[in-house]
């Protein structure tokens, strides 16, 4: 069951034997991961499985201790994080990465001005805010927004950078059912428009609803990979993760 309309061609992102060691602790241990263009891929795993650390290595916040990261076939292991962002990689982090003291418009502009001509910038921002249904909050200070609205704003900031690959760290965390529903639709809509999406989530209903492919991490290692049906049918996975929740 293919949910995306874009043809899944070559890998957009490849991790080869990537590991991150903090002292003797292997937070991520020898991971191979391949994300295809147009995919809607989910990382799951119990706390401490190394999911967020992988995101940080993809974005260049951490440098991997071992292994290499490729983006569109290009080795980006040692690339500065701002250069990665300019290649079309974008992240929405777990803790909202918005500028709380500034207005919604200011937040959007900071992201958009890097990737758009100033003549079309403000119109594009309005379009995105409409798409995210937060246009009425354009001049509100971000700290006054609800948690869900801040998450959407951050997705909006990512979109303003016209990303090819979007990393979402728990996009629906802390949201009510209606908000979660809206976020799920949003993520699917983006994916249909051609954005490759890799996301982390704990909410299995959410994952079941949107993910095409799921990778399970456990103790820093890749534990299983497959469609959501295969994963949920895998007794080992149920034991380490699903069984606990």
């Amino acid at each position: 069951m293919s949910k995306g309309l874009v043809e899944k061609s070559d890998a957009i992102l490849t991790l080869k034997g990537v590991g991150k060691h903090f002292g003797g602790l292997k937070a991520v241990d020898n991971i191979d991961l391949s994300i295809k263009k147009g995919e809607l891929h989910c990382l799951i795993g119990p706390n401490g499985a190394g999911k967020s650390t992988i995101f940080k290595m993809i974005m260049g916040v951490y440098e991997p201790t071992v292994g290499e990261v490729f983006y569109n076939g290009k080795n980006i292991t040692k690339m500065k994080n701002w250069d990665r962002a300019n290649l079309g990689l974008s992240i929405k982090m777990q803790v909202p990465g918005v500028f709380g003291e500034l207005s919604v418009y200011d937040n959007m502009r900071i992201s958009a001005q890097k990737h758009m001509k100033s003549s079309e910038r403000d119109e594009e921002i309005d379009n995105l805010l409409r798409f995210l249904d937060i246009i009425h909050l354009k001049y509100e200070i971000v700290n006054n927004l609800s948690h869900g609205q801040q998450q959407w704003l951050e997705i909006g900031m990512s979109l303003a950078s016209k990303p090819e690959l979007l990393l979402l760290d728990e996009p629906a965390a802390g949201m009510g059912p209606t908000e979660t529903e809206f976020t799920a639709e949003l993520v699917q809509k983006l994916n249909r428009e051609g954005v490759t999406i890799l996301f982390i989530d704990h909410d299995m209903d959410f994952v079941r609803k949107i993910a095409e492919k799921v990778t399970v991490l456990h103790l820093g290692k890749k534990f299983a990979e497959g469609t959501i049906e295969e994963i949920e049918a895998n007794q080992d996975v149920v034991d380490i993760y699903l069984g606990n929740s």
């Binding site: 962002a85 974008s90 990465g97 900071i110 990737h115 900031m157 950078s161």
Partner: peptide, 22 residues
């Protein structure tokens, strides 16, 4: 543009990097 970048850096350096700013 530059001014906005400066403000973004003042508010949150790490986030600004991830938005593609050197």
């Amino acid at each position: 543009r530059f001014g906005y970048t400066a403000i973004a850096i003042r508010e949150n350096r790490e986030r600004t990097k991830l938005l593609g700013y050197n």
